[in-house]
Amino acid sequence: MNPLRYRRGQALIESVLSLPLLALGMTAILTLGYRGLVFYMTDYHLHEALVCLDDESSSTCKKNLEQQIKSVLLFSESFRVNLGKTESKGDGEVLIQFKPDSIQPNLSVRKEMKFPLGSSFL
């Protein structure tokens, strides 16, 4: 018997079995990378919106934050922005709802900042 005869189909069988695992791994890496990017960019833009509250109106900062979040999201996920200011602090929250058929949970980022910002170093 010729052993090479039985090895011809082995590579095909191995690739057919390993291809779904490779696709699953790549999907997981891309999904986690996208969620990480969305989280950190949302966190950064929310921080900038809270800094904006020290000088601008709440509606202006909220509008700018919404535009920045829209530019980060690739798949037109729905999101909700809450931004408010009192005399001594500002607080904000962004809730991103991924598509209903997605297995990804919703993403929520919340921050608070004390005002006035300029006097904290004196």
Rank of each mutant, 00 (worst) to 15 (best):
G9F: 03
D91W: 05
K70D: 14
P116Y: 00
L24Y: 02
F121Y: 13
R7Q: 10
F121D: 14
L122K: 13
Q10E: 06
K70R: 06
Y40T: 14
L117M: 06
L53A: 04
G92T: 03
L50G: 02
R80E: 05
S119V: 12
T27Y: 15
Q97G: 10
P3N: 02
L65C: 09
L74G: 06
C61G: 07
K99C: 07
I96Q: 03
L32Q: 14
M26L: 12
K114V: 13
V81S: 03
R8Q: 06
I103Y: 12
I96F: 06
T60R: 11
E93Q: 14
L24Q: 04
D91F: 13
D55H: 12
L24C: 06
F79S: 03
M113N: 11
L53Q: 05
L83Y: 00
V81L: 08
L32M: 07
C52R: 01
I96N: 01
Y34T: 09
L46R: 01
E48R: 06
N106D: 15
C61A: 09
F121S: 12
S18N: 05
P116K: 01
N2V: 02
P100V: 01
G90P: 04
L95Y: 12
F39K: 15
P100L: 03
A11F: 02
T86K: 08
K63D: 15
M41G: 11
Q97I: 12
S59P: 09
G118V: 04
C52F: 12
M113D: 14
Y6C: 10
L22D: 03
T60V: 15
N2Y: 07
Q104K: 08
M41Q: 13
L74Q: 01
C52Y: 12
